[in-house]
Nucleic acid binder design. Structure first.
Length: 564
RNA sequence: AGGGAAGUAGCUCAAUCGGCAGAGCAGGUGCCUUUGGAGCACAAGGUUAAAGGUUCGAGUCCUUUCUUCCCUGCCA
């Protein structure tokens, strides 16, 4: 990994700033599930530690019990671990430091750099000033240290109600940086904390907790997102005035991905308003959603690396994520034949009761994956899209009178098309060439297409969940007039039940990944039962035919105007 | 009375402290194929936001301008 952050670290190594030590941390707030953007931050922090022979801690930023829950803590731990990272015994919580933080606050009060303010919340806001006008100092600002000490103790003891008093740092009410206008250090929150229960009535603000937590843990490089740039002077101020070890905060641009949303508030809405089935819905950009969708940790890690780290805010194309999962699964997923939209094929010259087992390669990219046997018989299913009665140019698949190959089986020629009274095609009559067993013609003749198939008698039925982008537009949040939910793709989930799958997958387990040949990658979903498998479509294969068809339908290449 | 940051190909990033602006993805063309979907090859894509300056030479240094983003929670 090489980016502007590693350059900074290299400089520190050269000038000896941290004696060559590199120690990072990933600091989630347990108020939601981790998403692909967090995955990049995880890869960054753990990756840098790994690269420099240092350590990376997992630390929960749990300073606001009003928003945080144990459920999220558990989910986050599972997700980071699944991505393949390990923090040994360094699982920490900001709440581990509540006592230490309290003492630091007391120290700042003693040296006259913090005070208890009894202004109301509205008054504090008014006194703060605006972006263009300086703030006004609170009338409580110059209380003697003794009084502040007594009042702060009273805050801790529950002597004030929520909102009646806060502890503030005494910095500069006229600073251009609003974070420095006497920021709140402690506020009263009277709800139980997931870890400390009812021990505390006061909780430190993020700014008063984060830097010191880094410091206590010996973190050298505290990597965070761009919106904390304005907070760095405050981060530095606390550390300098408390006079403890001073890590370096470095900010980078958080990851954005097209065709989705990544803000916690919006993800929560998707769940609460039932646009999806939960945090782990395979359409969600959460780590748990991607996992259920069939993404692999290595695909996510490669994507994170490829997306890059910089200070430029941008949007990474969703294509890139898909590229990496295809890349990974192409090498690792076993191939299997499955028909999603069946068309019955009867091989007229094949003996009625004969069944042959034909050898099929599990993964052409991995010889070690071996082979399996697929049963072949007189009645088969092929994909309805693989047949056209009146094929256009460049459609090379099956058509009346045309010969194609059934993968690993035989060449077949379509001799007749059977229709129902409505003219709907219900069955194809074909003849096979026994000499082409296995799929090769001894006389060297060639066919232009190879089709996947399943034997009707032997096929397993299963359910397929076909996922597409959750949103129909690249930037669902960009339109100021419209709520992002208006751009939800109505076709983001299509359930196909039954599909027909070759019997070799019968004993597949939840999480097993396959390529259904010529279609897409699929993963066995947790909703599967002992008598019915459920497959989630992870990502389709790249489909040049679909691209070609689109182009032919719209030769100018320009977007067709939408009719209103 | 404002403060902080960022502008390089459609997108994401490079460019070894001044030395021929390069990659990946997407899009394009072609080859190949027992996955038409794997694989491979090729081409295209740029006034480095703009102007001025320094210099033999500027994406890089200086000045000015423009654009975009973040900051006025007792959230993180």
């Amino acid at each position: 990994m090489r980016n502007f952050i590693t350059e900074i670290i290299d400089e520190h190594k050269n000038d000896g700033r941290f004696n060559g030590v590199v120690h990072t941390r990933f600091p989630p707030e347990p108020n939601g599930y981790l998403h692909i953007g967090h995955a990049q931050a995880i890869c960054l922090n753990f990756g840098i530690a790994e690269q420099y022979g240092g350590l990376c801690n997992l630390r929960f930023d749990d300073t606001n019990p009003a928003k945080e829950e144990q459920e999220y803590i558990d989910a986050i731990i599972e997700d980071v671990r699944w991505l393949g990272y390990d923090w040994d015994d360094r699982l920490f919580f900001a709440s581990d430091y509540f006592d230490a933080l309290y003492e630091m606050a007391v120290d700042l009060i003693r040296i006259g750099k913090a005070y208890v303010d009894e202004l109301s919340q509205d008054e504090i806001r008014e006194y703060r000033g605006t972006l263009n006008e300086p703030g006004v100092e609170s009338p409580y600002r110059d209380r003697p240290a003794d009084e502040n000490l007594r009042l702060f103790e009273k805050m801790r003891a529950g002597g004030f109600k929520e909102g009646e008093a806060v502890l503030r740092a005494k910095i500069d009410m006229s600073s251009g940086n609003i974070n420095l206008r006497d920021p709140v250090m402690y506020r009263i929150v009277d709800v139980p904390h997931p870890r400390t229960g009812k021990t505390w009535k006061i909780y430190p603000m993020y700014d008063f907790a984060h830097g010191q937590s880094d410091s206590i843990e010996g973190v050298t490089h505290s990597i965070c997102t761009l919106e904390y740039e304005d907070h760095r002077p405050l981060y530095d101020w606390y550390l300098d005035n408390i006079e403890i070890f001073h890590p370096q905060q470095i900010e980078f641009a958080r990851l954005n991905v097209s065709h989705t949303v990544l803000s916690k508030r919006k993800l929560i809405r998707l769940v609460q308003e039932n646009h999806v089935t939960g945090w782990d819905d395979p359409r969600m950009p959460t780590i748990s959603g991607l996992r259920r969708r069939g993404y692999t940790p290595s695909a996510i890690r490669n994507f994170s690396e490829d997306a890059g780290i910089s200070k430029v805010k941008g949007v990474v194309d969703l294509h890139k994520l898909e590229y990496h999962i295809r890349q990974d699964l192409n090498k690792s997923a076993n191939r299997v034949m499955a028909v999603l939209n069946p068309l019955k094929v009867v091989i007229e010259n094949y003996p009625d009761d004969q069944v042959e087992a034909l050898e099929a390669i599990n993964n052409p990219e991995d010889e070690a994956a071996g082979t399996r046997m697929a049963p072949f018989s007189k009645v088969l299913y092929i994909e309805r899209d693989d047949f056209m009665e009146d094929p256009p140019r460049k459609f090379f698949r099956l058509a009346p009178g045309r010969e194609v190959r059934l993968r690993y089986a035989y060449f077949i020629t379509c001799t007749d098309v059977v229709k129902d009274e409505n003219g709907h095609i219900v069955e194809l009559r074909c003849r096979y060439d026994p000499a082409t067993r296995g799929g090769a013609a001894p006389d060297g003749r060639r066919v232009k297409a190879t089709l996947h198939w399943v034997s009707a008698r032997h096929a397993l039925t299963a359910e397929a969940r076909l996922y597409e982008n959750l949103f129909t537009v690249e930037a669902p949040e960009a339109d100021a007039e419209k709520d992002f939910t208006e751009f939800i793709n109505p076709d983001s989930l299509k359930i196909v039940d039954p599909i027909y799958v070759e019997p070799s997958v019968k004993s597949a387990a939840v999480g097993d990944r396959f390529q259904f040949e010529r279609l897409a990658y699929f993963v066995v979903d947790q909703d599967s039962t002992s008598d019915k498998l459920v497959f989630n479509r992870t990502v389709t294969l790249r489909d040049q035919w679909a691209k070609l068809r689109k182009k032919t339908a719209n030769p100018s290449g320009k977007k067709r105007r939408r009719r209103n």
